[in-house]
Design a protein around this nucleic acid. Sequence first.
RNA 1: GCGGGCGUAGCCGAAUUGGCACAGGCGCCAGACUUAGGAUCUGGUGGGUUCGCCCAAUGUGGGUUCGAGUCCCACCGCCCGCACCA
Length: 807
Amino acid sequence: MSYDFAAIEAKWQDRWEGQRVFNVTEDPAREKFYNVQMYPYPSGDLHMGHLRNYTYVDLLTRYKRMRGYNVLSPMGWDSFGLPAENAAIQTGIHPRVFTETQIMRMKQQLRRLGAVYDWDRELASHTPEFYRWDQWLFLKLFERGLAYKQLAPVNWCPHDQTVLANEQVVDGLCERCDTPVVKRDLEQWFFRITEYTDRLLEDLSMLDHWPDRVRVMQENWIGRSEGALFSLAVEGSGSSFEVFTTRPDTVFGMTFAVLAPEHPLVDELVAGAENEEEARQYIARARVTSELDRLAEGEKSGVFTGRYAINPVDGRRVPIFIADYVLLTYGTGAIMAVPGQDQRDWDFAKRYGLEIIRTVAPPEGFEGEAYLGDGPAINSSFLDGLAVAEAKQKIIAWFEEQGTGRRSIQYRLRDWLISRQRYWGCPIPIIICPVDGMVPVPEDQLPVIHPDVADYAPEGQSPLAAVPEFVEVSCPKCGGPARRETDTMDTFVDSSWYYLRYCDAHNDSEIFDPDKVKYWMPVDQYVGGVEHAVLHLLYARFITKVLHDMGMVEVEEPFHRLFTQGMLVKDGAKMSKSKGNVVAPDPYYERYGADAIRLFELFIGPPTDDATWNDNGVEGTFRFLDRVWRMGTGQIGSIEEREAGEADREILRVAHRTLRKVTDDIERFHFNTAVAALMSFGNELQDYLRNGAERETFTEAYRLMLLMLAPMAPHISHELWESTGRGSMLAEEAWPDWDPELVAQQTVTLVVQVNGKVRDRLEVSPDIGQEEAEKLALASPKVASWVSRGIKRVISRPPSLVNIVSE
RNA sequence: GCGGGCGUAGCCGAAUUGGCACAGGCGCCAGACUUAGGAUCUGGUGGGUUCGCCCAAUGUGGGUUCGAGUCCCACCGCCCGCACCA
């Protein structure tokens, strides 16, 4: 019979919660540790993949607490968003009802795992208590000119009937429903994140406890490129347009220029052109084609405007085209085309029979098309002979001298589009007055609360627009009739500051008390999926910097250490409801209990790597726990009491070496090897018991086992701690220190190699000297037969290795 | 195309610094205990062996080194991110 995990789990879950063991307050006398998992969307049932992450965070909470830290580990809910709204559209159930039911279920599931939090600080973004401060934050950004409304071509999902941020368009498809995204011109709210581009980029270097790949992804997302900006005059008109290039050195190779179809100058350019009709059709088509379809066409398409531009460096005239391979949203929406040095321009030139001039000499034998590498400039007048980098400097200097161009840095990062035409999000606190324009809702009228609506389906605007009592208001400034903004905010606004609210979760007079935030921030350990590398993690950094500039937050970066966990894979795919390959924990809870599940989640592989689910794995960790249980119950009293001998001292040495290893492994997030070390220790402890243990020694070794197990398998270890006669709560015990004397090796294995191959192993003293080690090695009879042809050299690394180099 | 990462046993994996390759688990085989075993315990699990050991082996090929899973070069394969970004 195995141990009664079900009863034990319920008992300790009640105690942790009932005795408020993990509820904390600010305590300047103690070092704090702020441990946060990215707050989840309350999506219902947790599967084994989710449990992996919750187990990591819970382990840290419990471990750091034992290390003496004042550990804050809160939990909350990213509870606005589409799933609840879509359910409402289908079933008519209010999204709030749906959401709150899901939250209750998720809480039960976290409790069942034995995951502990300071539930006093629970928050949920769909509650007016929380989103009131979203609105307050919006108004602060608005005051500072960091929130603005603008007509802009935006990503529109025809299925969800809403706009999407650039970050939510994946391969030209809506991130949520995979519908091809189209461009539309709409009045939308933006946050001016581009104001912070430089700081977001530069401060990445402060984040040296973030995974490199996340920093690289943010860097690429911000997408800084250096180059030059200069003007092209349109022949026979007063107009001109600016182009941006990273290769100003190739300007003598420009053989045409291209404008994006949405470029403001195109109307004027095509007016009266010979092929005006064709051009207008092309422009119209390009504007309604989704990015995906544009790319899918493969061949670049475009249309000649009938106009010519003048190359400022040599006065040559080049034809101006309109083509959709040039994007309005990057640079100036117009380019100089140098087919000799740019593959896209090459492709276009080939298709439309345009001239190609090489301006960088390709190496001999070069057989490619456009040449992008370095080399001496050719066909480039005063740049001829210069390498690319030199030529760039010279031509930029020339532009600046002439006053026709200048050095410029462009970024890929765009302002953050936060408007959503949906119901289940935070209403934007703005009133649109025909007289006063965009008028903020006065702070004392916050929160702007959702009215209930009859129909949740969006029809191009938020369902809120159909509620006259909500929409029709008087202007706070002039008192005249006005309309309320009906867009709601992107849910990423909520998640960009919730971790600050945990510090003071129920403050109803301000967003948070800056002193409390000062105590807890930054988040010491942030845990979440790498899929948030450029979305949430960039926005959160931005908002933190804004609040810092407002004097509300001392830190400039919110997350000191970031850990991105791997995913759980089954049948070759990430475990997810939509793929239908989830493993539900329930049968495992029933058969093996929460601790065995936790231990297996830790053991399954390196935490940063994806791991493949193995149906038999939990059985393995359960066997280990069951062994620990059997060792601790009933037997200890019958172990003989006697003087401790060498074998007894040895098991204590094993215990302390295990303690050192487990401590190290937890500190560096190698949880899988920490579990392996405990299993190994368990095996040794069992051997010790079988071969005649001494009671006091065993009790001590077993005590260390329970302490080490406490953060990983808390229920069983708490129960055993109590049942082996200890009155304290294990969670409140201190993590033990290993004894350096016990950890020190009595003897070490000296490996004797001949030509790098192991030929003998000798047990020697750890402080053996070089001479002594070499003498012993050379004296080894096993070595003798391998060195008969003479010894050339001896390399010693005492006490672990001697390598004899022989003929 | 650009950027990042990975390749070790039948499977998942270990190996902080260049120094004993494969800890721990799963699976499999055998044995013990047993009325029974899907419990538990013990041993084995690359090849050879005279049972002392010996040999091979970390995707492939090369290099540096007394010594390479680890460093360097090239290639093969897989994964992730970005992508007409001028």
